Computed example of a mutant assay.
Amino acid sequence: MILTTARLTLRLLTADDWPLFFALHNDSQVIEKCFDKPSEAQIRAKFNERLKPWQPNSNQPLCMVISESGSGKQVGVTGFTASQLADTQEVGYLLLPEFYSRGYATESLDAFLTWARGEFNLQLIKAVVSAGNIGSEKVLAKCGFKLVRVEPLAYEIGGVLMDDHHYLLDCTDKI
């Protein structure tokens, strides 16, 4: 499965993508507003989980690698993880810092969501962003997500409790 945009190509994660996945989960700029730095064993377990086949409601993550179409340079990853809510998938994305502020997160997420809504009978798509991750909040808003709840002091990063901002995209609104 391959998705394309004007500037990007998205394809399923493969075992060869370990260096990118590892880099994304180790770069302090990438993870500072997302999570504490995991151990290599934790990253490997997360990576292996994302290599398994995905189907809606399977509780398996779906991970796609984002690359620049022209250069072939790997930009980051996007995809779904299992959600606690029925009929809901949770979306996430991580990009390497050298590709920030180019619109790649919005472009790739929009393409991924357009494909997913057309391919599967998704009702809701969820995203959770830690307070202060303004770039991700802007991406979600551009892709049609609405802030539905702020959960105070819900998540700890670097020893600091942060609010979680919960977003939803109602897939029945537009396809």
Rank of each mutant, 00 (worst) to 15 (best):
143 C>A: 09
135 G>F: 00
4 T>Q: 06
99 F>V: 03
63 C>I: 08
154 A>T: 09
44 R>T: 13
47 F>W: 04
26 N>R: 15
171 C>D: 09
41 A>N: 08
153 L>T: 15
131 A>P: 00
174 K>A: 09
115 W>L: 10
2 I>K: 10
84 Q>M: 05
94 L>Y: 14
148 V>E: 02
114 T>I: 05
172 T>D: 03
14 T>V: 05
26 N>M: 11
139 V>R: 03
124 L>F: 11
94 L>S: 11
6 A>V: 14
37 K>A: 10
112 F>Y: 06
123 Q>D: 00
122 L>E: 09
29 Q>S: 10
65 V>S: 09
173 D>A: 14
130 S>D: 12
158 G>W: 07
91 V>E: 01
24 L>R: 09
173 D>P: 15
22 F>N: 07
169 L>R: 04
24 L>S: 10
84 Q>Y: 02
42 Q>V: 12
54 W>A: 03
26 N>A: 06
150 V>D: 07
165 H>Q: 12
37 K>H: 01
114 T>G: 04
137 E>M: 15
98 E>D: 13
167 Y>C: 06
87 D>C: 14
159 G>P: 10
118 G>V: 06
101 S>H: 14
35 F>P: 14
97 P>H: 01
94 L>V: 09
96 L>N: 01
110 D>K: 11
53 P>E: 00
95 L>T: 08
74 Q>E: 14
173 D>Q: 15
45 A>I: 13
91 V>G: 01
143 C>K: 09
109 L>V: 08
28 S>Q: 12
47 F>C: 02
17 D>I: 03
103 G>D: 01
102 R>H: 15
77 V>T: 02
7 R>I: 10
21 F>N: 04
31 I>P: 15
26 N>F: 05
101 S>K: 12
169 L>F: 05
104 Y>W: 13
77 V>F: 00
16 D>A: 06
142 K>C: 07
14 T>S: 10
124 L>N: 12
173 D>F: 15
65 V>D: 04
32 E>H: 15
122 L>D: 08
166 H>T: 15
129 V>A: 06
20 L>R: 05
104 Y>I: 12
65 V>Y: 07
110 D>F: 14
110 D>C: 02
163 D>G: 01
125 I>F: 03
55 Q>V: 09
66 I>Q: 07
